[in-house]
Design a protein around this nucleic acid. Structure first.
Length: 828
DNA sequence: CTCTCCCT
């Protein structure tokens, strides 16, 4: 092996790891760290003959690193150097370096938390900050603390914020290595970019082809943009011998391979790629990179339990990584479709996956680890609380966690299966239904890349049953199926069947919907009849392209893009409601609802069967509970207020008199409107039995209902202390007005009061009545609470005035002895 | 008017 830049720092790295037990190695791509570091550390005395485990974020990278190192030792993979990943492991008894994919570490730790055979764990490409790497590091740090203070950790990264990692490693030393990348000349757009990204990209391609030699790699956010740029370029008379190729993850393997291969000598290629070409795939011969500056990222929403794709600006780190793809073979050129000013505002790093991902897998692993609260572990970024809570709720719904949040035996089995908890749930629960074989097929289908090529469109493109059927067909390699994907799905399905003891069983594609309901109980959808659906999680959903399934009464959506009001359904299968109920009775909630229907202004008693937000059936109850009917009607009065009752004058007056009494004696009940609403249960409820509607309530006699709430003794005292009328000297029974409970009033013509020396008092003599003295024509003349001083003073002023206006009336000089009258003059 | 990438 020829010398690489990393070699200069290896002795120091070995020494630091020996002393401190932890280290961070920052090295640019091309420094050779992945293949050089494990071999160089293998004979370190502190390793004590134990193994080195190195994590790679991708299977391809893990295999090729192992192969490269084995070749350097002149050995086969599986001797000193091996690799380990799901469905593919090459490790022998002599293996001392195991290159593993990130998820494997979690499984290793869960089965042997002390990792007895391992002396050093290396996290490669840690700057990618995958969920698995973050989790793996957190678990390792605790394993070190609890069981293995001699387990050494090395974190390797290209563009990392080394200080933060060094910090959670407990102040680990940082070693930096020079890189070996060729210079890449960077061109920014001169001013504020105008027009569509696709137009700019196409123009940049033409410019690059004219100005530069070699192949061109263009980074675009997604398939849509790639196709648009491709068609723009196709419309141009491009330079001869230039081939335009597309590259994204959902393309079949053979098409991806064609894009990656070096161009035929004498020709040039332009590869239009997603971020797949940033780290995962290397395109041979790239001399020029054109970067749109945008990427698509998934964002999980804990509110809906679904993900959405967002188009966002790349981080400065990503942009540098993309640019570096032009400098692998020699000096290169990079065109950035943004300005130098905008460059200053790019985020330094992308968002770590843990911040925006579905945390159900992580929550399950932590529960198996025995950790309920993630803050018990050390994280670079702690799992967000909302997503973590949603994840735990899902696991509890599945029976993976018990009431205390601890892992159940079922949850432990789910984790062992090594699938997303939803798919693990489907696999395990399918066994008693006799559907394990189909469940394994389905889990494999959903876990792997889509079996069907992108070109497979039409009215059944979103139907999962077709994929299940294709999986079982001998000649499935036909037109629309991606052969490489089919092979992987079949392998995974077969392994699943073996694990569940369902080998050789037939696939039942009609059970598809039912099985999906096990995994996605929150995504069962009820057709609304117009092609739109209501999901059991309460959201709307629709197929982006009209499908045969658009008319289904019920279906289960396995894949959705959570966009706006109606999520887009990508993959689904129909389900029969009766079958669903029979097989999964636990999903259905039965409700006896007694509710006020404010439109019809009546209480409705219904028997409803619900599946989340979906109403399966809704019928009137045969014999509703009278107590609940009365309570519901009472609730309506409570929310609408006492104004809903048919108040009469008599009732209001009775209310006012009691309010007046309560003011002076708190032993009396409070009958203010608010207090009446608050105590409806006591005084109104007994009268509501047998009633259901507003109309029924209108038949109530509020006065007698209120009166019934008073004891006989209180009624007697009310008449005595808050009389309805007072008889004045003229003999007229004048009603007392209690509208103002602080000042009950009597409005009466002055002449009827001749001879009344004192203001009448009520409430057992405590409250003088406010006298509204009126003219013969019932006009207000004077208000007083002290009649005797009125007669002495003010009367004489008033009399003069009244005499002028009502000369025919009787205005005596001595009102205290004069005869009262309700006519002009007293009868003689 | 259509979905980024990866893994147990």
């Amino acid at each position: 092996m020829s010398a690489v830049p990393i070699d200069s720092v290896l002795p120091e790295l070995a020494r630091l790891l020996g002393d401190a037990g932890r280290a961070v190695l920052v090295a640019q791509p091309g420094a050779g760290k992945t293949t050089r570091v494990p071999l160089a550390l293998l004979d370190s005395p502190w390793l004590d003959g134990k193994k080195i485990v190195m994590l790679e974020p991708r299977r391809l990278a893990a295999r090729s690193a192992a192969r490269y190192m084995a070749a350097g030792l002149g050995e086969e993979v599986g001797r000193t150097v091996g690799y380990r990943m799901k469905q593919d492991t090459r490790v022998g008894p002599a293996t001392r370096i195991e290159v593993i994919t990130e998820g494997v570490l979690t499984r290793m730790l869960q089965s042997d938390p002390a990792l007895e055979q391992v002396g050093l764990i290396i996290f490669d490409e840690f700057h990618e900050r995958s969920l698995h790497a973050d989790l793996g590091l957190a678990l390792c740090l605790q394993a070190c603390e609890l069981f293995r203070d001699d387990l050494r950790l090395l974190v390797m990264s290209a563009t990392l914020d080394a200080a933060a990692v060094a910090d959670i490693l407990g102040g680990a030393p940082v070693v930096e290595s020079p890189g070996r990348v060729y210079p890449v000349e960077t061109h920014y757009l001169p001013r504020k970019p105008e027009g569509r990204m696709e137009d700019m990209a196409a123009r940049a391609v033409l410019r690059a082809l004219a100005e530069q030699a070699g192949d061109v790699l263009v980074f675009l956010p997604g398939m849509k943009e790639i196709r648009r740029v491709a068609s723009l370029l196709a419309g141009q008379a491009t330079v001869p011998d230039v081939q335009v190729l597309q590259l994204h993850g959902s393309m079949p393997q053979d098409a991806q391979d064609r894009a990656i291969q070096a161009s035929v000598p004498g020709t040039r290629k332009v590869v239009l790629a997603t971020s797949i070409a940033e780290t995962s795939l290397t395109i041979e011969g790239t001399k020029v990179v054109i970067d749109s500056g945008w990427m698509r990222v998934p964002r999980f929403s804990p509110q809906t339990g679904m993900s959405r794709l967002d188009t966002v600006r790349v981080s400065a780190a990503s942009a540098d990584q993309r640019r570096g793809r032009a400098g692998r073979l020699g000096p290169g050129v990079c065109y950035r479709l943004w300005t130098q000013q905008e460059q200053a505002y790019l985020e330094p790093h992308g968002t770590p996956e843990i911040e925006e991902a579905d945390l159900a897998p992580l929550a399950l692993e932590l529960a198996v680890w025995g950790t309920a609260d993630p803050s018990e572990l050390r994280w670079l970024d702690e799992p967000p609380a909302g997503a973590y809570r949603q994840a735990r709720e899902l696991l509890e719904l599945f029976g993976a966690l018990d009431g205390q949040g601890a892992i159940t035996p079922h949850g432990a089995r789910m984790a062992e299966i090594g699938l997303h908890p939803r798919l693990a749930q489907m696999s395990l629960r399918s066994v008693p239904l006799g559907l394990a074989a189909t469940a394994c097929d389905l889990a494999a289908l959903l876990n792997e890349r889509d079996l069907f090529r992108q070109s497979f469109t039409g009215s059944s493109a979103a139907d999962l049953r077709l994929r299940l059927e294709a999986l079982g067909r001998a000649d499935a390699g036909a037109h629309s199926v991606d052969a490489a994907a089919l092979k992987r799905v079949r392998l995974e399905a077969e392994n699943g069947r073996r694990a569940l003891g369902a080998t050789g069983k037939r696939t039942d594609s009609e059970a598809c919907g039912l099985l999906l309901a096990l995994a996605f109980p929150d995504r069962i959808a009820q057709g609304r009849g117009d092609g739109r659906f209501l999901l059991s999680n309460g959201r709307g959903a629709v197929f982006s392209e009209s499908q045969t399934l658009s008319g289904a009464a019920y279906l289960v959506a396995a894949e959705l893009d959570d966009a706006g009001t109606d999520s887009r359904i990508m993959l689904a299968a129909p389900v029969d409601a009766a079958q669903l109920e029979a097989a999964l009775p636990g999903l259905i909630e039965e409700e006896a609802l007694v509710e006020w229907d404010s439109t019809a202004q009546t209480v409705r008693a219904r028997h409803r069967r619900r599946l989340g937000a979906i109403v399966l059936s809704d019928k009137p109850q045969q014999r509703p509970d009278p107590d609940r009917l009365a309570a519901a009607l009472l609730g309506a009065v409570e929310s609408e207020g006492t104004g809903m009752l048919p108040w009469t004058n008599t009732a209001r007056k009775l209310q006012q008199r009691v309010v007046f009494m309560h003011r002076f004696d708190s032993g009396w009940p409070d009958w203010s409107d608010e207090a009446l609403v608050a105590t409806l249960d006591e005084w109104l409820k007994p009268h509501l039995y047998g009633m259901r509607s507003r109309n029924d309530v209108q038949k109530l006699n509020v006065a007698s209902v209120l009166e019934a709430a008073l004891s006989w003794e209180r009624r007697r005292r009310l008449d005595d202390q808050a009389p309805t009328h007072i008889v004045v000297p003229s003999g007229t029974r004048v009603p007392v007005d209690y509208a103002d409970p602080a000042a009950p009033a009597l409005a009466v013509r002055l002449q009827e009061l001749f001879g009344m020396t004192e203001t009448p008092k009520i409430a057992g003599g405590r409250v003088p009545i406010t006298m509204h003295l009126l003219s013969p024509a019932q006009r207000p003349v004077q208000v007083t609470r002290d009649l005797s001083s009125f007669w002495k003073d003010a009367y004489f002023e008033v009399k003069k005035d009244l005499k002028g206006r009502y000369p025919k009336h009787y205005w005596p000089d001595d009102p205290l002895t004069a005869a009262p009258t309700h006519r002009a003059k007293p009868r003689v």
